[in-house]
Computed example of a mutant assay.
Amino acid sequence: MSKTVAKAVHVLDSLAAAPKTIAELARELGVHSSSALRMVQPLADGGLIARGPDNRYRLGLRLAELGQQVLDEMDLRVVARPHLIALAEATRSTVHLAQLVDDQIVYVDKIEGATTIRTWSRIGRAVPLHTAAASKAILAALPAPDRDRLLDAHTFTRFTERTITDPAEFREHLEAVERAGYATDQAEFEPLVRCTGVAIPDATGRLGAAISLTAVRAAADRPAVDNPLRRMREAANAIATALGRPLH
């Protein structure tokens, strides 16, 4: 990657964290403000960043358009969406689609359920490997070398009292997930949130995708859904079949 492109990527990453002035960007890049301005101007001209009335730069709408185009062109997301919608309607819960992308497990689609409570998850956001049901389902289904590479580089941060922070314990947990054929998140990232995850079947072990069902404990008074795990497996199998993936 050229130095110019690397600095442009740094600018985008920096503005993703928080809006900044030219002076602040210049300090981060180690250049004069005039050089920083020349660097960001093409990004602004292309709509990738925008300057607000406070003279701080922030990410531009063009990035959202490009990101949406990438998501729309993903065969998995396009094929899976009608099945995700049907699952969300049948279970009255929020449904996620997650996939392994460049050594990160990322939410690539989300269908909001009937609950009015919104969760932390967002399309395009990386999934916490050691807490999310979707990530556990994917990790358990991956070939061992791929799973080990991801886990060896992962930091097991504690988010709640239920978070598994010991790498050895988590690997044992994944073995249990593999035996059961599904994963759970029992308030391991957000205190009130429970999730169930099922990998999308793929005999090659390379698809690296899963669907998950999210329920909020505060919404437990809603009518119970008949066998949501069965519905999830049916949806996962339907997605795999539509993609032409060989099932286990």
Rank of each mutant, 00 (worst) to 15 (best):
M1W: 03
V5Y: 08
V5N: 07
A6Y: 15
D13T: 11
T21W: 11
E24K: 13
S34E: 14
R38K: 15
M39C: 11
M39Y: 08
G52F: 04
G52V: 07
L61G: 11
E73A: 07
H83S: 08
T91L: 12
T94D: 01
V95N: 13
H96M: 12
L97A: 15
Q104L: 12
V106H: 01
V106Q: 08
E112W: 07
I117M: 10
I117Q: 10
S121M: 05
G124I: 13
A133P: 04
A137H: 09
A141C: 14
L142E: 05
L142K: 04
L150G: 10
F159R: 02
E161I: 13
D166F: 10
E169D: 14
F170V: 04
F170W: 12
E172F: 00
H173M: 04
E175W: 00
A176S: 14
A180E: 15
A187D: 11
A187V: 00
F189R: 05
V193K: 01
P201C: 10
T204I: 01
T204A: 00
A209D: 05
L213A: 04
V216L: 02
D226E: 11
P228I: 05
P228Y: 08
R231D: 14
M232R: 02
M232F: 03
E234Q: 15
A236P: 09
N237V: 00
L243Q: 06
G244V: 02
